[in-house]
Design a protein around this nucleic acid. Structure first.
Length: 319
DNA sequence: AAAGTCAAACCGATCC
DNA sequence: GGATCGGTTTGACTTT
């Protein structure tokens, strides 16, 4: 067996051999039988042999310790060597692993039984389970980290595409705003030249065949409608995770555990709150939604900022 | 042979 | 008070 021969006992064997003391197994047996080592079979050494060859051990499963290991133990005991750390044998570990799979906690009776079966000290069994749980936890943490990282990467990709979309829309809004202003200017000029019209009459809808101009003149009206406001709000700003799993063609990852996603504080509005918000957004006392209030003012680094700057707000509800 | 890895054992804090 | 946990030490074993 590899790596089982470098202990104090073996060194002691070498010493004995150097001293010309015969150290064959037979000699050791003789030494044992004649020596004052009564504590051997019931000793508190790290590996107890009392059951390894006894009736209660798993003889069919666990092989007895190597003779040389026994010799080491004997020598350690008899020469009062400090106990050396020893790895559990493969079959012992295998047996413990199987038990760990069944139940990773260790009740006292089970500990005693396992110790008996394996020929170990109950404390060794307890420590093995303790260390095994720690290893399992570490692996679990690694798994969780990988899951979270995948989730983050997916969200980041979606965020990036949304930001691109936002930029695109912003550009579109800019060009439409320009057209609208131009339109208003032309209308103002025509009003000045028309003296017969009452001062506060409804401005005539400019005759335009352009689709884009039509969209522009309709936009504020559409947005001011209550249902549109609330639906727009819930569609865009309600970050209550899985509901908005479809953004464009890219589907947002649905985390198995909601704790894996970062939820903005204000994502969870009650129906009443939504109604109040909608009402507050209605004209005439028109309150523009202030996205700065949503505490997105200091987003963490690398985070997706869905909030809009003051500059952006101007594009949202231009008048 | 030095460096790195793994696991047995230990320690102090905490929980029940 | 015993069990458990997170952190650490220590020694065996492997890799470079």
């Amino acid at each position: 067996m590899a790596g089982r021969r470098v202990y104090g006992g073996s060194n002691m064997t070498a010493i004995l051999q150097n001293e010309g003391i015969p150290c064959s197994a037979g000699a050791l047996e003789a030494l044992l039988s004649s020596s004052s080592c009564p504590s051997f079979y019931g000793s508190g050494s790290m590996v107890s042999f009392e059951n390894v060859n006894g009736e209660n051990t798993l003889d069919s499963f666990l092989r007895p310790l190597d003779q040389e290991e026994k010799e080491d133990e004997v020598l350690d005991d008899c020469f009062h060597q400090p106990e050396k750390k020893r790895r559990l044998r493969a079959n012992q570990v295998q047996f413990l692993e199987r038990n760990f799979e069944v139940e990773n906690k260790l009740e006292p009776e089970r500990k005693i039984q396992l110790a008996k079966d394996l020929g170990l000290q109950p404390r060794q069994v307890a420590i093995w389970f303790q260390n095994r749980r720690a290893r399992w936890k570490t692996k679990q943490l690694e798994k969780d980290y990988e899951t979270l990282k995948a989730s983050y990467d997916s969200l980041k990709a979606d965020c990036d595409s949304l930001l691109k979309e936002k930029e695109k829309l912003k550009t579109e809004v800019l060009s439409l705003t320009d057209k609208l202003l131009l339109n208003e200017k032309e209308r103002g000029n025509s009003e000045l030249s028309d003296h017969n019209k009452p001062p506060h009459s409804q401005p005539q809808k400019p005759a335009s065949n352009s689709d884009s101009e039509q969209k522009v003149s309709n936009l504020p009206i559409m947005i001011c409608k209550q249902e549109d406001i609330s639906s727009a709000k819930s569609d865009i700003f309600d970050s209550d995770g899985p509901q908005y799993t479809e953004v464009g063609n890219s589907s947002m990852l649905e985390p198995a555990n909601s704790s894996h996603v970062f939820e903005p504080d204000q994502s969870d509005l009650s129906q009443d709150e939504e109604d109040n918000l909608s009402k507050s957004l209605l004209p005439p006392s028109y309150n523009y939604p202030n996205f700065e209030d949503a505490d997105y003012s200091n987003p963490p680094e690398n985070s997706c900022n869905f909030g809009f700057t003051g500059e952006d707000q101007a594009f949202w509800f231009w008048s």
